[in-house]
Amino acid sequence: MHYIPQLIVDALLLGGIYTLMVIGLALSFGVTRVINFAHGEAVMLGAYGAYTIALVSGIDPLLALPLLMVIGCLFGMALFKVAIEPVLKAPHVNQILLTFGIGLVLQNVAVMIWKADERSVVTPYAYSSFQFGEVFVPGGRLIGFGVAVVLVGALFFWLRHTEFGRATRALDEQRDAAVLVGINVKRMYALAFGLSVALGVATGVILSFIGAISPFMGFHILVKGFAIIVLGGLGSIVGAVLGAFLLAFAETAVSYYVPNGTGWAEAVAFAVLFLVLVLRPRGIVGQAVAD
């Protein structure tokens, strides 16, 4: 019982990281209805990008973050136009295989460039921490949480108050009517996809100094991201944020209260996924999806 204050802190900070991880996935699926199985690789490349910049020029990952996000967005838009637009009308299985394949290629490119050993960026704030009585707050994760709040806030602002943001929401909800009001759907799709990659890259930059990065880290991220998206409701960005925090709390609680709980963390994600699919397939907030 005396774990609770620390548990809340740990869960909140983890939730912030999960939110970052997932929000890009929710955006790209909500708008394009394509599940991007290479999203984990966007995170991975963001992490390596931050690592390489830090290694070569000494620039802090947080400073490199905006540049990396812009590069990620442009790359995502180009990738969409070249590889994904052609299969928009194809069966879902084809789309999944395509993005999965892209992910594998990116993984192996990363292995070739950076080798397979684990890396991490060492920054002064990554090791800082604050003590409030018995509760300890790690500085690196707090910053990650802060970045998540800023980016999610910016995303919501963009969606609410800008032309393209409004158009993205419209596209998310009612594709036909969006076409009818003159929204250039293909361009919006590319933009949404590019933004989702940018958000993935941001996640990677944060992870580069919080933990360890390796070319294969993308897969675990994707699996967890998928569980969160289903939990929160496919296609709902608000749902994704809720799902992220819910899963973070569930995992942290299990870690603290179940003996050997940290060993069960991944199982929690799958158990949650299973329960949601059985009890409430549309997720907490999501709309029903036909297939």
């Binding site: 774990y3 942290t252 603290y256 940290t262 060993g263 069960w264």
Partner: peptide, 18 residues
């Protein structure tokens, strides 16, 4: 104390607290 951890665990803080 003995704690098992899943490979690629994102947060080992709970087990460290314990």
């Amino acid at each position: 104390a003995e704690e098992i951890v899943r490979t690629n665990a994102p947060d080992m803080n709970p087990l460290l607290t314990k």
